[in-house]
Amino acid sequence: MTELAVSSVTDRIAVQGHARRQRLQDAAFHYATMFFAVAVLVILGGVILALVEGAMPALSAFGLSFVATEVWNPVTDKFGALAPIYGTLVTSAIAMAVGVPVSFGIALFITEICPAWLKRPLGVAIELLAGIPSIIYGIWGLFVFAPFMQSTVQPFLIATLGNVPGISGLFQGPPYGIGVLTAGFILGIMVLPFITSITRDVFETVPPMLKESAYGVGATTWEVVWKVVLPYTRVGVVGGVMLGLGRALGETMAVTFVIGNSHRIAHSLLAPGTTISAAIANEFTEAVGDIYTSSLVALGLILFVITFSVLAVAKIMLLRLQQKAGT
């Protein structure tokens, strides 16, 4: 009986020691993860403070006119961010108009129509596109795609859409090859693998039973996609599109190669322009004077605000979609 009592006490002590170690491990894990989360917020706050501090001289000198004027003259220290903001928004819109439909088509083909032997090669090819450095896209765009645009696409657009009332101004002017439209196309190609990969992954989460049931009652492939797949995966699809949009807004090197880097707003999409990231990359090393440098930092702050606003809107949209799905 004594040996049994000793054994019972020993087991109880061992269990208590194990429970104590588990509590310590849980506490350590809790505080470690909290530290990492707080560190992210601290870093983000530091970035915001650095941008605001660096942008204050320019914002104090120009006020709200900084975001409402087009002039950009380092000689006279007169700067306005309207042209880079316009270029950033327009090129990103073109990229979404090009990339989203193509990405959806590729993802639907891979998940719903593609033969089994072709799915893996296509998936690997899409993932390889995402791994290509942006400067490679820029070099290809400048030496291959821009000449093709100049000799083929832009003359066609000028001869056709350039004569359509209402939109003719968007497709008029000489075919430079480079320009806002070319940069938008390059961005569309760059965001395509990101949107495609996410869309394909969320499409594959649809339970086969749902699709088989729809096919069983006579639905076509398009009806299954439109009425079953997309409603089931809309939250993930919207998230993928917004991720691609964030990628397009902040792209630098590829756009710098093909947009023309002109600080002016042209009505035609064929004309050269600039974006916020391209302007910063081109001029930061040459900035002389506090106002010039501060104006470039202010451009970075504006880009941060635009990107943050896009992500915030995307988060709100996702929350509303989740609430609708819950109801």
Rank of each mutant, 00 (worst) to 15 (best):
K315M: 07
A298P: 06
P133F: 11
G54R: 05
V102Q: 02
R234T: 14
S213A: 15
V102G: 09
G46W: 03
K119T: 14
I94A: 07
I94Y: 08
A55E: 07
I189W: 09
V237E: 01
D26T: 11
I139L: 15
F194V: 15
A146T: 10
F35W: 07
E70K: 01
V202N: 00
I126Q: 03
I276M: 10
G169D: 09
I158P: 00
T307K: 01
T221K: 06
S213D: 04
T69G: 14
P207D: 02
G216F: 04
A39V: 10
H263V: 10
Q16F: 06
N73F: 03
A125Y: 02
W117P: 00
A266I: 00
I280E: 01
A254M: 04
Q16S: 13
L4I: 15
Q154G: 04
S262K: 10
A32K: 12
E70L: 06
I139C: 03
L161F: 15
I291Q: 05
L157G: 03
A325V: 13
V310R: 02
T88E: 04
Q16A: 13
R12M: 12
S65E: 12
A39I: 08
L118P: 03
A325Y: 08
A130S: 13
A130F: 02
Q154I: 13
M253Y: 10
M317F: 11
G131Y: 01
V297I: 15
I167M: 00
A55W: 06
G166H: 05
A61K: 13
M190T: 05
W117Y: 12
I291R: 04
